[in-house]
Design a protein around this nucleic acid. Structure first.
Lengths: 220, 220
DNA sequence: GATCGTCTCCCCCGCGCGGGGGAGGTCCGC
DNA sequence: GCGGACCTCCCCCGCGCGGGGGAGACGATC
C-alpha cells in the first residue's frame, strides 16, 4: 500500500507542485489538500494520511500550532513534514520542537522531496535542513572548516553550543563535558537542550547523527 | 606537565618499541615498565601514571584481569589502553568491558600510537579498532558495502546486531527499533547491550560515533 | 539607561537507557 | 545426541538524560 499524503499550504501553486511531484511516484499518493492549519484536523481524522506536508507560515493557524493540534487531538497521528521557504526559518525549529518529524525546503529538487516523504513515512527523522548537507558538500570536498562553520551559521549555534556539540560527537557525557569546560553539569544540560532544539533532535544521539550528516564533523 | 605512561607487556622488544615511540614526544613520558599483570598494581600506586599501555595476553595475570584489578584497587585509576597483536582479538572486547579506555594495535604506525595515548589521556575513548577505520578507507573511496561488511566482521557483530546498529544510526529509540523489527523492546535492549560491549561503547551515542568512524555508515 | 543575547546555574520531574542477572527457543556442526 | 551460537523475552535497579520552568551576570547594541 502506498504512502498517503495530505498537503497543507496556503499557496495553491505550491500544493500543485507537491502533488505533481509526489503523485508521479507509484508508492506515494496525495489524498487531500488544505489551505490553512485550521482545516487540518478534520481532514487528518477523515483521511488518516501517513504524512502531512505542512507549511509553517499560514493564515488562521500556522504550522507550529497546527502540528501541536494534530499531535494532541489524533490518536495515531501522521508523520508531519514541515515545509518552508527559508532554510534559516526560526519557525521551523519551533515546529520541530512541537513534534514535527522532518524538514523540507520548497526549493528542494523533486527527488529530495520524494526522499523526504519516504523517510518520514518510514518513521525516520529528517533532523537537519537538507540545505545544510548540500552546503557542506559544495564547500570543498571534505567538509572542512569553512563548511562546518557555514553549517553552524545555518543552525544558528552559538560558539559555546558548537563546542559542546563537538564534545558530544566525541562521545562525552554531560558530566565529562562539564569537567572539560570547567562549568557545572546544569550549564551543559542547558547547552545540550538548546542544541537539540536548534537541530530538531530528540536526544544527543540524533544530534550527533545530525552533526555527521551535515558535515559539522567528518569521520576518519 | 607531560602525559605519564606505564608500559605493561611480557615482550621486552614491544616495551622498547613503545618507549622509543612515546619518549620521542615532548608531551609524553614513559615512567615505568612491567612484564606481567601481577606487577601492575604496585607500580600504578607508586608511579601514578596517566595512562597504562597494557598487553592483553600476558603470563600470570592477563590484561583483562589486570585492568579489573587496577580499576578496583586504585582510587584515581589511570586510563587503560589495551595493546594487542590481532585486531580480531576477543580478549580485547572483554578488556573494554572490564573498563579499559582504548584499543591499540601493535602494528599501528608510530603516529597512531602517539595519537591513541594522547586521546585516552584526554579522557576520550578509542572505541573501535583503528584497523577497522583503515580498512574502511582502503576498500573503495566511500566505504560502501564491502567495507561496511568487512568492518562488521571485525567487530564480530551478528546480522541482527548489525541491523539494530543501522537503525541506531538513524536515530531510532529502542521502542522504535522494536516496532520496526517486530520484536519486544527487551529484545532490542539485549542486542544494544551486545553491540555496546563489542564496540567498547558506553552508550548508544558512542556506538553511533563508532559506526560513523569505522565506515559502517557513511554520512551524506 | 534599556534591551537583548549569551553563558551560567538552579529547581522538580518522568522516563528511557543500560547493567546485572536468567531463561527458553531454534538451528547448526561436531 | 549434545554443545554452542543466536534470537527472543523476562526480572530488578540506578542513574543519566531531557523537558519545563526560572534567574542572575555580563557585554553589546540601540
Amino acid at each position: 500500500m502506498p504512502v498517503t499524503v495530505l498537503l497543507v499550504d496556503d499557496e495553491p501553486l505550491v500544493r500543485a507542485g507537491l502533488r505533481a511531484v509526489l503523485d508521479a511516484q507509484p508508492d506515494i499518493e496525495v489524498v487531500g489538500e488544505a489551505a490553512d492549519g485550521a482545516a487540518v484536523i478534520p481532514l487528518v481524522r477523515s483521511l488518516r494520511p501517513d504524512v502531512v506536508a505542512m507549511d509553517v507560515r499560514m493564515p488562521l493557524l500556522d504550522g507550529i500550532e497546527a502540528t501541536r493540534a494534530v499531535l494532541r487531538s489524533v490518536d495515531e497521528p501522521p508523520k508531519i513534514l514541515v515545509v518552508t521557504t527559508f532554510e534559516n526559518d526560526e519557525y521551523v525549529y519551533e515546529a520541530l520542537r512541537a513534534g514535527a518529524d522532518g524538514f523540507l525546503l520548497k526549493r528542494a529538487r523533486p527527488a529530495e522531496i520524494v526522499h523526504a516523504v519516504r523517510l518520514v513515512a518510514e518513521g525516520e527523522s529528517l533532523l537537519f535542513p537538507a540545505s545544510v548537507r548540500q552546503l557542506a558538500a559544495e564547500h570543498g570536498e571534505n567538509g572542512g572548516n569553512p563548511a562546518a562553520r557555514a553549517a553552524l551559521e545555518r543552525a544558528q549555534l552559538t560558539e559555546r553550543e558548537a563546542e559542546v556539540l563537538r564534545l558530544m560527537t566525541r562521545g562525552l557525557s554531560n558530566a565529562e563535558i562539564a569537567a572539560r569546560l570547567v562549568v557545572g553539569t546544569e550549564t551543559v544540560k542547558s547547552h545540550v537542550s538548546a542544541i537539540l532544539a536548534k537541530l530538531g533532535a530528540r536526544d544527543r544521539t540524533q544530534a550527533v547523527i545530525a552533526a555527521y550528516e551535515s558535515g559539522f564533523v567528518a569521520p576518519g
